[in-house]
């Protein structure tokens, strides 16, 4: 590219710019909206840039609404689900990647089929189940489905990563008298750390973003997660767009940080899970 004519280079940058603006437009607009005063929000003509930037909306988010509570709920539910899911998925993925047992292929295909069953098909029975267990409006009622629905993806990604670890290392450990579980813990886990981080990020992202289950299984602000919480106070209050924009911006930040840190791993994990699953 460097050796090309300047005209082509400028053209290339323009194209990159178009791609970026298109994919970031809603966030940029939400960000701009969150810094506008109430008067500037509802005035003609629309201003593209806040003329009198203000942080009143961010203050309002934390003082007027149970936003802090939603944030805490999301954080707790997501962290617990991710850790539990990784633990269970790591065991299963090791079995799929390394152990020979009857029915292994069938189980893998079965898992893929399960991953295909849309949540909306099972949401009504799930609601009945959780209600009968008395777990509506509880963290446990959310964590259990989240762990389950993230399991297939996590298992696919981890299986792909486990398969890349050289078999010889393990065999050496086994010959030296290490047990299977010890091998998993002492040899595989440190080597599979990138895989665990990748699967962890992807599970975290899925869980943090989940909407349908949280909408159906919670009905009080005590346990509502951030996506549902924000979506619902659009109806409860009279469309305070500045405050909503500030809340949306804040709720997006954890995911941004996570993706920024794990960008390369995520891309690798997505393609590995996608192609070799």
């Amino acid at each position: 590219m460097a050796g090309r004519a300047p005209v082509l280079r400028v053209g290339h940058w323009l194209l990159v710019g178009v791609v970026l603006v298109w994919s970031l437009a809603p966030y940029l607009w939400t960000l701009a909206t969150s810094f506008k005063t109430e008067r500037e929000l509802y005035q003609f003509p629309v201003t593209y840039w806040p003329h009198a930037p203000t942080i009143v909306n961010y203050v309002a988010v934390f003082t007027q609404n149970p936003f802090g509570r939603f944030l805490l709920n999301s954080a707790l539910v997501t962290v617990i689900s991710t850790v539990a899911c990784l633990f269970i998925a790591a065991l299963a993925a090791y079995a799929f990647a390394r152990l020979r047992f009857r029915g292994r292929e069938a189980l893998l295909v079965g898992l893929l089929i399960v991953a295909m069953i849309p949540l909306i098909t099972v949401i009504v029975p799930l609601y009945i189940l959780v209600r009968n267990l008395g777990l509506l409006n509880s963290y446990a009622g959310l964590v259990a489905p989240y762990v389950t629905y993230a399991l297939p993806v996590a298992i696919f990604i981890l299986t792909a990563f486990f398969r890349e670890i050289p078999q010889e290392l393990e065999e050496a450990a086994l010959i030296d008298g290490c047990t299977r579980l010890n091998t998993l813990w002492r040899i595989i886990a440190p080597l599979a750390a990138p895989g665990l981080i990748t699967a962890g990020i992807i599970v975290f992202v899925y869980t943090w973003n989940e909407f349908l289950v949280a909408l159906t299984l919670t009905s009080t602000n005590e346990v509502r997660t951030i996506t549902v919480g924000i979506a619902l106070y659009r109806g409860e209050f009279t469309f305070p767009w500045g405050v909503i924009s500030a809340a949306v911006t804040l709720a997006t930040i954890p995911i941004m940080v996570l993706i920024l840190l794990g960008q390369r791993l995520v891309i690798r994990g997505l393609t590995a899970g996608a192609v070799k699953g």
């Binding site: 943090w208 924000i230 924009s245 996570l258 891309i267």
Partner: peptide, 22 residues
């Protein structure tokens, strides 16, 4: 650029949809 491209996929679609309604 690649990082920025991952955002629409990774950030909550429910929240992005709220941004879009505005």
């Amino acid at each position: 650029v690649r990082f920025l491209l991952l955002l629409p996929w990774a950030a909550p679609v429910a929240l992005a949809a709220i941004g879009w309604t505005w």
